[in-house]
């Protein structure tokens, strides 16, 4: 496959107070083997040498697990490739001559910091409200003193694979953080270790989610469709049950 020439329309915003706008860039000789972020690296190198500011975007591990990267590509969080973070998206899924639109996560509870960088500390505060099991270091009993059914352990693991990227929020028409919050409530609520705090956890985390300005869930399922880790919608039903029974 030969190289591609592309047109990028990228959201540029100097800071939270700036209104922001789309800016068009041409990129040439893009290799199909490049990752999406490497394509942006090459553009940024050019911008820096020309004395412009590089496009700011969050990224770190570049192997799909840290959850730091994330941009809305052609209207879809992390792009159209399913179960893929932005850093794992490769240019071979695009065609020569394409125009690609790149925007930040857009949600009331994720204010833009600069360009494609948003503030997701609201997620940390939801975890602070109760996304843990209270067990100070050194106080744990022997690990085999509490067997866990394999099915429960596996299901807990599935929910625990959430990487906290926020794509679910960006995809949701209501800007809801239900999938993120439900994944943690499900992970801990399925394990015997998580039972003592199960009610208080669900209540506190849901209330914090609301307090942060995330919208409510209306079961559109957009969240799970874009989730790079495939967290299922059923976790939200479980969160709702735990929340209601906690009252």
């Amino acid at each position: 496959m030969s190289t591609m020439n592309l047109t990028l329309r990228v959201w540029r915003q100097k800071g939270p107070e700036d209104k922001g706008r789309m800016v068009t860039y041409k990129v040439v000789d893009v290799s199909p083997d490049m990752s999406f972020l490497e394509m942006l690296d090459v553009l940024n190198d050019r911008l820096i040498v020309e004395g412009d500011e590089p496009i700011a975007f969050d990224h770190d591990c570049r192997e799909g697990i840290c959850g730091m990267c994330g941009m809305v590509i052609n209207g879809v969080p992390h792009g159209e490739q399913r179960a893929t973070t932005t850093c794992q998206l490769h240019m071979r899924h695009f065609n020569d001559g394409d125009t690609i639109t790149i925007e930040p996560w857009r949600a009331a509870a994720f204010p833009v910091v600069k360009d494609l960088v948003v503030d997701r500390t609201s997620f940390d505060r939801i975890i602070q409200a109760g996304g843990f099991i209270s067990v100070p270091a050194g106080s744990a009993p022997d690990a085999h003193s509490l067997p866990v059914q394999k099915d429960a352990a596996d299901a807990a693991f599935d929910a625990a694979t959430c990487i906290g990227c926020g794509a679910c929020v960006a995809a949701c028409p209501n800007g809801s953080a239900s999938l993120f919050t439900a994944a943690k409530i499900t992970h801990l609520g399925l394990l015997p270790q998580g039972q003592p705090e199960r009610d208080s956890r669900a209540k506190a985390m849901v209330e914090q989610m609301d307090a942060e300005g995330f919208g409510g869930c209306t079961n559109t399922g957009e969240c799970t469709a874009v989730c790079p880790k495939g967290i299922p919608l059923s976790t939200i039903a479980r969160m709702n049950r735990d929340y209601l029974s906690a009252k």
């Binding site: 067990v135 050194g138 690990a143 067997p147 352990a153 596996d154 992970h187 394990l191 998580g194």
Partner: peptide, 11 residues
Amino acid sequence: QAVAQGVPFAR
């Protein structure tokens, strides 16, 4: 410690 925290190790 990790098990008590709810780390979902393989079982």
